[in-house]
Structure formats: C-alpha cells, structure tokens
C-alpha cells in the first residue's frame, strides 16, 4: 500500500500550503451562560491528515467538534468545512462528513446491521448502495461474527466499532471521532488505529479527540492542545516536543521545596513537577545528570530516570498537573 511520507518529516510550511484546509475555524467561540467553553479558537485541519484535539476534561473538545459539524452554532467566529460556512450550509456539510460521538448512540435492541440501515436512512442512501456499504463495513471493522446480535449484547469494543461503522456508511470525506478508543482494550485500540490509518491513506481526513498521549503521538499527524477553551499549542507531535520541551527528560525524586536549590546555576532547562517527581528537560539529559551528580543534587540516586521526552510531558507542562486547574 502506498503511504504518504511521515508528516513529521514534511516541513510545516510545505504542508500548510498543500491545499485548502478541510476545516477552517476563525475566532470561534462558544458561550454557555457565564462560561466560555470555547474561547476564540483559530484552527485549520489540512486535507488528508489525521488531526488530534487534546485537552483535559472540560477543555472544550466536544463543543469544538459540535460546532464543526454544525450541531450548535458558534457564539462568535466562523466555521468553514469543505470551504462552506457550516451555519449556512449545515445539511450540505453534514452529507459529506461522518461523526462518532463520545458516547455511543446506537439502538441497543437492534443489531449492527439494523443500526447501519438506520444510518443509511438518515443519509437517504439508495437501498442497493446501503446494502453494499453495510457488507463492506462489516468486513472493514470485523463485525461479521456478531452482525445480527442486538447491540446491547456486544462487548464495549464491538459496540464502539459499530458506532464507528455507522458514521462511515456514506463514505464521508471527513471523519470526526470523539474519543474513539476510550475504555477499549489494547488489542482493539491497535486494530482501530490501523483502520483509521487505512481510511487516511484512502484520502479521508480524520479529526479526533483523545486523552491517550500514545494514541496522539502514534496516530496523529498534527495536534492541537486545548486548555480552558483555548489552543495552547499546535503542530506535529515531534515539533510540539521540540518546541515546548527538549529531546530528553531526566526524572528525579526530590522533596517539592528543593527545586530552586537543584536548579541553581542551570540555565535553559524546563521543568515539570509531578508530586515528588521533578522532571527536567534537556537535549542531553545524560550530561545534565552528570552536572547534577557532581554537585550532589540528584536526590535519591536509585530513582533517577533518563528517557526521551514525550507528548505526555508536553501535555502536562501546558495544561497543568494539578486536579484543580484554572478551568
């Protein structure tokens, strides 16, 4: 199968000018009472990529998606999908995109096949087309063995696959997945990632949200991190790590009050506090560790860890590690 080059290897500027974005949000805001769930966001999802929205609970991911597929109008700003203003051309836009909601919304007493037929009706597909599509999707998502059982009798992994299948019934150009793999076992997650990659290779643009950093890092070409309704960072996973932290992380176990003493005379090191752990980011963490060792500032030496910096570090650095954040 022909795969597009790893997007992290594609220069950012080149990717941006590739073509018009599939989703373009300008100054989009959503207000619920006193609360700004989405706070004037600019966002562009390029065609043919897998784009991830990350952010803590309540950051505004689902609300953002709902504005993109036109379920709710923005309080300010404009959302364009396929170049069309979603508020004015809601029906036309929705004919060309598919959405898997955060919670499965299936008819639980009906089977996978019957649920697929219902969604085919929602899109007014001709009968022949829909039956052919149903056959394809049963194979694509490996649902055939349980295709005629009531959905409520299926495991969580099967139900999620049915929910994804119904959103693909009309071959959407844009697939929106709200936390597609939350609560699924590792095998199902891996299988779903593979299906999502196949869809992308076939030209479908994918926009998803996730709380799993490994998922974002391995599946998404580009990411936007949301916090309290704002985009706090965006770019490819590798670029985010490079820009916001450094290549490597050095983890120490130290009492919380000692940060200033440890960091004295050390410049250009970003840090992250996670309880008793202090994480320092540097391009050469081993060298940093040597420096600290010479000065006897490594805390418990048996608890020292050097590892590559990852997306989780970026996420926590940008959105905070405390349970009670600003949100």
């Amino acid at each position: 199968m022909l795969r597009r080059p790893m997007p992290s290897l594609v220069p950012d500027r080149l990717a941006e000018h590739d073509s018009d974005p599939i989703v373009a949000c300008e100054g989009v805001a959503k207000r619920y009472g006193d609360r700004l769930a989405v706070d004037h966001i600019d966002l562009a999802v390029p065609a043919g990529l897998c784009f991830g929205l990350l952010g803590p609970n309540g950051a505004g991911k689902t609300t953002m998606l709902r504005m993109i597929y036109g379920a709710t109008p923005p309080s300010a700003g404009i959302v364009r999908v396929f170049g069309l203003d979603v508020t004015q051309h809601t029906r036309r836009v929705r004919m060309r995109l598919g959405v898997t909601l955060q919670e499965n919304a299936l008819v639980e007493v009906l089977s996978a096949v019957e649920n697929l037929r219902i969604f085919a009706r929602y899109h007014r597909l001709p009968r022949v087309t829909s039956e052919r599509r149903i056959e394809e999707l049963l194979d694509f998502l490996e649902l055939r063995s349980h295709a005629t059982l009531p959905v409520r009798a299926l495991s969580g992994g099967f139900q999620r696959r049915v929910a994804i299948a119904v959103s693909l019934i009309h071959r959407p150009e844009l697939l929106i997945l709200d936390e597609p793999t939350t609560g699924l076992d590792p095998a199902v997650r891996l299988a779903l990632w593979e299906r999502i990659r196949e869809l992308r290779s076939a030209g479908t643009t994918v926009l998803l949200t996730t709380h799993y950093m490994d998922e974002a890092q391995r599946l998404c070409d580009r990411l936007a991190i949301l916090s309290a309704g704002r985009v706090v960072a965006d770019g490819s996973p590798a670029a985010l790590i490079r820009q916001h932290l450094a290549a490597q992380a050095l983890e120490l176990t130290l009492p919380a009050g000692e940060d200033a003493r440890v960091l004295a005379e050390i410049r250009d090191v970003r840090t992250l506090r996670m309880g008793r752990r202090l994480v320092l980011f540097a391009d050469d963490a081993t060298a940093l560790l040597e420096t600290l060792r010479e000065r006897g500032r490594t805390g418990d030496p048996s608890a020292v860890v050097v590892r590559p910096a990852n997306l989780e570090d970026v996420f926590l650095a940008l959105t905070g590690t405390a349970l009670e954040g600003d949100a």
């Binding site: 379920a71 909601l101 008819v107 969604f119």
Partner: peptide
C-alpha cells in the same frame, strides 16, 4: 438518555 437526536444531528437531519 439514548442521545438519539444528538446522533441524528450528525447527519443531514435538522
């Protein structure tokens, strides 16, 4: 509870 209408509003149904 069943979010049936939310699902409909992901399709051309208004």
């Amino acid at each position: 509870f069943e979010k049936t209408y939310a699902a409909m509003l992901t399709t051309p149904i208004q």
